[in-house]
C-alpha cells in the first residue's frame, strides 16, 4: 500500500535504514540498485541549501567536514516544510550539541546564529524603517515615553566570541580566539531595504536595543543602559539607529 511504500522510502533515504530498502526491494521495487540515486539527490540538494545559508561555517570547517555535519543534521532534522528558505533554523543548536565540532571550534554555533540571522533578515517581511523625520513633530518631553519596535528584520546576537570578525572570513583566525570576555562581540543584523547589514555593536548599544525587544520605553532603556555602560551616549546611539533603519516606523508612545 502507498503509505507503507512512502514510509519505507523515507526510512531508506533520510533514515539511512538499509532494511527499509530491502523491504521495498522485496515488495518488487525494480532497479533497486538505483535507490541510492534518490538518497544522493536528497542529501546533496539539502547540503547545498545549508551551504548557501551558512557559507562562512562551510568555509571555515572545509567541504569534507561540512558534508559530514550537513549529513548528520539532515538525517536528524529533515525539512518540515516544502519551502527551503526556512531550512536550517535548527542548525546552530545542532552544532552546539555536536561535541566533535564544538570541542574543536567552540565558536561555531554562534557563528551559525549570525549566518542564520542574515538568512532570516533577507527573507523576512518588508517594513518601513523609522527615520528622524518621523519624530520631528514630537515635543521633547514626550521622548521618554516612546516605545520603539525593532524593524521586523532585526536580529540581535550576543556572543563570547568575535563572531563579527569571523563572519565572512575565508579562513580560521590565527591564533584562534580563546573566548575570554575581551573577545566577546555583539552583532546587529537588519535589512531596512534590500541589503542586509551586519553591524558590530558596543555593549551599551546592544543592551539599549535589547531593551526595546523586551518592550521598554526609551526612558527605561536609556536609564538601564546608562547605569551599566559608562561609555554609552544616547543621542549618538539613537541617531545612528534612526539613520540605519533599526526601528519600525510604527511606534507607540505612552501618555505623558
Amino acid at each position: 500500500m502507498l503509505p507503507d511504500l512512502q514510509t519505507a522510502f523515507r526510512a531508506g533515504t533520510v533514515g539511512r535504514d538499509a532494511a527499509a530498502v530491502a523491504t521495498l526491494a522485496d515488495d518488487g521495487m525494480e532497479n533497486g540498485h538505483r535507490f541510492g540515486i534518490y538518497r544522493n539527490n536528497i542529501f546533496l540538494s539539502l547540503t547545498g541549501v545549508l551551504e548557501a545559508a551558512f557559507p562562512t561555517v562551510a568555509k571555515l570547517v572545509g567541504d569534507e567536514n561540512f558534508a559530514v555535519l550537513a549529513h548528520r543534521f539532515i538525517a536528524a532534522h529533515p525539512p518540515q516544510r516544502p519551502a527551503l528558505y526556512a531550512y536550517g533554523a535548527d542548525f546552530a543548536a545542532f552544532l552546539a550539541g555536536f561535541a566533535p565540532a564544538v570541542e574543536e571550534l567552540p565558536f561555531l554555533p554562534d557563528l551559525a546564529r549570525v549566518e542564520w540571522a542574515v538568512n532570516e533578515a533577507y527573507f523576512e517581511a518588508d517594513a518601513e524603517p523609522l527615520v528622524a523625520e518621523h519624530l520631528a513633530g514630537l515635543a521633547p518631553d514626550r521622548y521618554a515615553g516612546l516605545r520603539f519596535r525593532l524593524h521586523p528584520t532585526v536580529r540581535l546576537i550576543g556572543s563570547d566570541w568575535p563572531v563579527w570578525d569571523m563572519w565572512g572570513a575565508e579562513a580560521l583566525p590565527d591564533p584562534r580566539p580563546d573566548g575570554k570576555q575581551d573577545a566577546a562581540q555583539q552583532v546587529l543584523v537588519r535589512r531596512p531595504e534590500s541589503k542586509v547589514d551586519v553591524v558590530l555593536l558596543a555593549p551599551g548599544d546592544f543592551a539599549f536595543l535589547d531593551a526595546f525587544a523586551r518592550g521598554d520605553t526609551l526612558g527605561e532603556a536609556a536609564a538601564a543602559v546608562a547605569g551599566a555602560d559608562a561609555d554609552f551616549d544616547l543621542s549618538t546611539c539613537l541617531a545612528g539607529h534612526l539613520a540605519g533603519g533599526t526601528f519600525h516606523s510604527d511606534y507607540t508612545i505612552d501618555a505623558s
Binding site: M1, L2, P3, L5, Q6, T7, F9, R10, T13, V14, Y38, N41, I42, S45, L46, V49, P78, P79, Q80, R81, P82, L84
Partner: peptide, 25 residues
C-alpha cells in the same frame, strides 16, 4: 510524484507506484 511523508519534506520528486490506489490518491 511525492516528496512528503510523516511530515518530513524529502526535497526530491519521488516515484509513485502506478496503481489504482495511487491514482485515487
Amino acid at each position: 510524484s511525492w516528496s512528503t511523508t510523516g511530515g518530513d519534506y524529502l526535497n526530491d520528486l519521488l516515484p509513485l507506484p502506478y496503481t489504482e490506489e495511487a491514482l485515487d490518491i
